[in-house]
Simulated assay, not measured.
Amino acid sequence: MTTPNPIPDTPLFDRKGSIRGYRMNKMAMALGNPANRKAFLEDEEAYLDRFGLTAEEKTAVMARDWHEMVRLGGNLFFILKISAVDPVPITQIGAAQAGMEHGAFLAQRLGKV
């Protein structure tokens, strides 16, 4: 029996999600290695192929669709490694997770205009 998600529209990182996102999380964690960061920057698609990402996972990573990466089983702490390579402000990722425009997120959550 499947337990309903207690937080609607929020992907939960549970055992099932961990298994589903294994390839993507392994790829992201490997970015801690300078040689892997270089390979990622030089040919992102080839780098993703090394980890066997599905087409859906590759599309999410290459589009920097943070919400979709999490929905596909990406652990936020792991996929933040991708943002460190770009670099992408963590508030931009927070805005994506909240389904908000970055400026509106800054204004609402941090009181910045």
Rank of each mutant, 00 (worst) to 15 (best):
L53D: 00
A46Y: 00
R15E: 11
L106C: 11
L110H: 06
Y47R: 03
N25A: 05
G99K: 06
K26W: 13
E68G: 03
P87D: 00
T91R: 04
N25R: 12
Y22A: 11
G17Y: 01
A35V: 13
Y47W: 04
Y22S: 13
S18M: 13
G94Q: 08
N36E: 15
N36A: 14
M27F: 13
W66L: 03
A46S: 10
I19Y: 10
L106H: 05
A39W: 02
D86Q: 11
G111S: 02
T2C: 09
N75W: 06
F78M: 08
Q108N: 09
T10I: 15
D14P: 07
N75K: 04
E42I: 03
E45Y: 07
G94K: 04
H102Y: 10
E68T: 10
D65T: 03
G73N: 11
K58Q: 03
I79C: 02
Y22C: 09
R64W: 12
A46D: 08
L12Y: 03
A104M: 05
T91F: 08
K38W: 02
D9G: 08
L41H: 04
D14L: 09
D9P: 03
P34D: 12
K112G: 05
A60S: 01
G103R: 12
V70Y: 04
A107I: 01
P89Y: 04
D86L: 08
V113Y: 05
G21N: 12
M1A: 15
M62D: 10
A39N: 11
L53V: 01
A95K: 05
G111H: 01
A30D: 11
E45C: 09
H102W: 14
A84F: 05
M62V: 06
D65F: 10
K26I: 14
G21D: 07
L106P: 08
L72F: 03
V85S: 08
